[in-house]
């Protein structure tokens, strides 16, 4: 499937990746070639083949409902770029 610059920009926006025009141009080229390779999948007959999400046919294990984690805010926030009063700070969110 051919890829337009618009597709790259859309993906970049969804993924919140800043791209300048040169980069967008370059990625159109790269991504087109990758997709061209991926398009080889289209030739395979997969009628009736169930998608495989995990390599083992295992099922989810369930955890007992117990509180096992203590407060470690101070430790976790040591690697945070901006905190105040225990809150993570971001530029104003307008609702």
């Amino acid at each position: 499937m051919a890829l337009e610059q618009e597709d790259v920009r859309r993906a970049a926006h969804l993924a919140r990746l800043g791209l300048n025009d040169d980069e967008a141009e370059r990625y159109v080229d790269d991504l087109s070639r990758i997709l061209e390779m991926a398009d080889r999948l289209q030739a395979v007959d997969t009628q009736g083949v169930a998608p495989l999400a995990h390599p083992l046919d295992a099922t989810q294990r369930l955890r007992a409902d117990e509180v096992t984690e203590a407060n470690q805010r101070e430790r976790f926030q040591r690697c945070a770029p901006a905190v105040e009063n225990g809150l993570y700070l971001v530029p104003r969110v307008v609702e």
Partner: peptide, 25 residues
Amino acid sequence: LIGTHTLSEGFFDAYYKKAQQVRRL
């Protein structure tokens, strides 16, 4: 970018789902 594109609306079945089927094969 590739991953975002192939998961997005209109492409999911052709790429992601197809790839998972091929994965089984």
